[in-house]
Computed example of a mutant assay.
Amino acid sequence: MAINLQKGQRISLTKESAGLSSIMVALGWDPVKSSKKGLLGSLFGGTEADIDCDASVFMLRENDRITGKQDVVYFGNLASSDGSIRHMGDNLTGAGEGDDEQIMVELNSVPSDIQKLVFVVNIYNCEKRNQHFGMIENAFIRIVDTKGSKELLRFNLTEDYGSKTALIVAELYRHGTEWKFAAVGEGTTDKNISDMLKKYR
């Protein structure tokens, strides 16, 4: 049975699943339904705004630093140069149940100088569309052992992120020979990936 984590908690993935080598990091969210005025609104219920959330991975080296664009996996660069991390594609609306975006990580193939993987989500064109994470609900991240498709853990983001336009969702980091997971859940007002990367340069 998957472990449900709260913000700030950490867990060793290596200890939870012996021989763990390949995982799927899945993120999901739903647009908040808003009431729609008029006859059609009362007949058919609320409507959902199209909110394009983008999940990305920052590959950090010593001292939590990123060296260049090659260390960012996102919708514009779907795989790391070494092939250890693969983004499975962009979901433009967040509609539908279950995972919205999935990222595959071959833990044994991540270069040894990469100390940490940071999983983030930002809202595409948030300023132009006047959108923020208060318009999103049911956000989560989950880790699945791809061998046997066993869900190892889940972290539901339950805070009110009403004024935030980006989220640092979680971190996967080396601790000796182990890989550990940290549930971060930190909201920021960054407008795009470039803004988010500034703290890691």
Rank of each mutant, 00 (worst) to 15 (best):
S80P: 04
M88R: 11
Q102D: 10
G76M: 06
G68C: 00
E97W: 08
S81I: 11
S80T: 06
D82H: 11
D71S: 14
T93S: 04
L78V: 11
G76N: 08
F75N: 09
N91L: 03
D90I: 02
Q102T: 12
T67R: 10
Q70G: 13
A95Q: 03
N77E: 06
R86C: 14
S84T: 08
D82A: 14
R86W: 11
Q102H: 11
Q102S: 13
S80Q: 03
L92H: 12
S81H: 10
A95M: 04
S84M: 14
S81L: 11
F75D: 04
I85M: 04
V73Y: 00
G76S: 10
Y74H: 05
L92W: 08
E101G: 13
G96C: 07
G96Y: 04
S84K: 14
F75H: 11
D100P: 15
L92D: 07
V72L: 08
D71P: 13
A79H: 08
T93R: 02
R86L: 13
V73R: 00
F75M: 09
G76A: 09
H87V: 10
T67I: 12
Q102N: 12
Y74T: 00
D71Q: 10
E101C: 15
G98W: 05
E97Q: 09
G68I: 01
S80K: 01
T67M: 09
Y74M: 06
D90Y: 02
G89H: 04
R86V: 15
H87T: 10
G98L: 07
D90K: 04
V73G: 00
N91E: 06
D99S: 14
G94L: 03
E101L: 15
T93K: 01
E101H: 15
D100M: 09
Q102C: 15
H87R: 12
I103R: 04
G89R: 03
H87L: 11
S84E: 06
D100C: 12
V72W: 00
T67S: 12
A79L: 12
I103F: 12
G98P: 05
G89S: 05
G76L: 07
K69W: 08
L78A: 13
N91W: 02
K69P: 15
Q70R: 13
R86I: 13
M88E: 11
Y74G: 01
E101S: 14
M88Y: 15
T67F: 08
A95C: 03
